[in-house]
Amino acid sequence: MEGVQCDYLSELDVVWDRSETLTEKPFHYCPGCGHSVMNRLLMEVVQELGIQDKTIGVAPVGCAVFMYHYMDIDMQEAAHGRASAVATGIKRILPDRFVFSYQGDGDLAAIGTAETIHTVNRGENIIMLFINNGIYGMTGGQMAPTTLKGSITSTTSSGREYDRHGYPLDITPLISQLPGASYVTRQSVDTAKAVRKTKKALTKAFQFHMNGGEGVCFLEIVSNCPSGWKMTPIESNEWLQDHVFNHYPLGDIKPFPK
């Protein structure tokens, strides 16, 4: 904050600072990408709950593959689709740690579908974060299982068609039906208000396990991919609000057990 010169703020009024749980490494995500917000939120929550020394994360294969560069906690990078199995292995060996997995839609809902369903079905005591941006970001914008009808991707050049490509896989409500899921919610990070709601959900999920709660906390974040969608960040957020949230409605799908 040194060197800030401003009429209405004194040097002591810090309004935002990088959490100590974030490293100094700049994010590699494209400008306006929801991954940046989610990476930061995660570490803010870990910081605020004081569980940096007890949290172990699992990174996916996808745009968030390098998230362990930014997070100042112990982390493992999993093979494509297997983050929840890796998280299972960690949690079973170190049951007093807080373990989260973080996956995109191709990772969690295509190649890793079996691991996703079975991890939830076993009711592992972990947090599963699912960043649904409707596309394969890292590999250059191919169709994802969650891609909506008509969306143009590099493998659906005239838009996704149901009869050719199948329907968008709405996996989160499916997940919520499993007894192993204790908390299932769908949130977003497209507005400041949405970010606050997501942070609250994330905090509650960690607190749930800190207080001895059992079962998976599953958080879907309906997010954007300005690069893959070929939009500006603002356009991509408007697209979310106008075209995506009606297909993937936000809110708690399965509240915490009483």
Binding site: A78, R82, A85, V86, G89, I90, R92, I93, E115, H118
Partner: peptide
Amino acid sequence: GEFIQAESEVAAINMVYGAAGCGKRV
């Protein structure tokens, strides 16, 4: 010890990866 009958060999070996990464005998 912990025992899991996994949903596939793919899941099983990835659980081993995660658990071995914790430095315990698995």
